[in-house]
Amino acid sequence: MEFFTSHDGTELAFRTVGDGPPLLCLPGGPGRAAEYLGDLGGLGAHRTLVLPDTRGTGASATPADPASFRVDRLVADVEALRRHLGLDRIDLLGHSAGGSLAMLYAAAHPDRLTSLTLLTPSFAAVGLPSGTGAREVIAARAGEPWHAEAVVAYDGMQSATTFAEAARYRFAFEPLMYGRWDDAARAHAAADPAQRSLPVSEHYYAGYTPDTDGLRRRLAALTCPVLLLAGELDLWPTAASAAEAASLFPDVTLTVQPGAGHYPWLDDPTALTTTVAAFLARSDDRRTDNRRTDNRRTDNRRTDDRRTSA
């Protein structure tokens, strides 16, 4: 585990996994420590994953003011980590509620991104729905033995007004969040309470109102490529919500992973890593091409300058 000091003096933790160019990965929950991301199904074989614990979670310090947990204010922590890493630009990935944070970072610091990967993201921070058609997705899984109990739990979570109130429904609801409710999924879901900070969960969106028009304008002006990856069986976001949100970005690749829920690296790690690694490789190639173009332009200007002076 490594540590850095953020803009307000809070000591925040992160760990690195894997090898290759860095990929900064923002966890969701909201309020869940980055441990649940693992190595994103083997993506660490292609990239060095930088996995920060959001303030108030995991090994990161908990500041006195819980208002600093709010999603728009966490943008400053992402920027502080970029500076700490000494990176002029970053490849950024956000999962779930971390996708909301990643979009706000992109809107605030577009010149600091080389690519943006949104992995089953929440669209709450940009004022778009995430659950379009969720009931249809749930109904399509009616043959599962856990289905009836999970639907009751889903309704309970939908009616809950706080994360603490929803917590008692969570485990019975969790099968709906995975493509396969197997031993690995059950262990992953069972780890949630120990990894989650309910105060961070409660304050993540509390008091936040998105500047929808402004955010859409800024995201529409992004020059970096965007990968928007949804799970076919996910509820937050549904594939339908992801398709609607794709129009936010001028250079976007929309991918729906078959048979995947909210954690696609568990449902089919090969599919997830292949898709993300290929996208990042294309981004690297385009960045190299852009540098070559810039160098040629510089060389041409120097040649023109020499001719003029002669």
Rank of each mutant, 00 (worst) to 15 (best):
S6H: 10
H7D: 08
V17I: 13
G18C: 06
D19S: 12
L24T: 01
L24D: 06
C25R: 03
L26I: 06
L26G: 07
D39C: 05
L43Y: 14
R47H: 15
T48Y: 14
L49E: 02
V50G: 04
G58K: 10
A59F: 08
A59D: 08
A59M: 08
P63R: 13
A64P: 00
A76I: 09
A80N: 07
L81D: 05
L81I: 06
R82K: 13
R83I: 03
H84S: 07
D91H: 14
L92E: 02
L93N: 04
H95Q: 13
A97H: 13
G99V: 00
R112F: 03
L116I: 11
T117C: 14
T117E: 03
T117F: 02
L118K: 07
S122H: 10
A124L: 11
S130H: 13
G131W: 11
R135T: 06
R135E: 14
A139Y: 09
R141C: 04
R141H: 09
Y154F: 14
Y154S: 03
D155R: 15
G156M: 09
G156Q: 08
A160T: 06
A164R: 15
F171C: 01
E174R: 15
A187K: 15
Y204T: 03
T209C: 03
G214W: 13
A221H: 15
E232S: 02
D234I: 02
L235T: 01
A239M: 06
A240N: 07
A246L: 12
S247Y: 08
L254S: 08
P264S: 04
D267E: 03
T270G: 12
T275Y: 05
L280H: 11
R287S: 12
D289S: 12
R292T: 09
T293D: 13
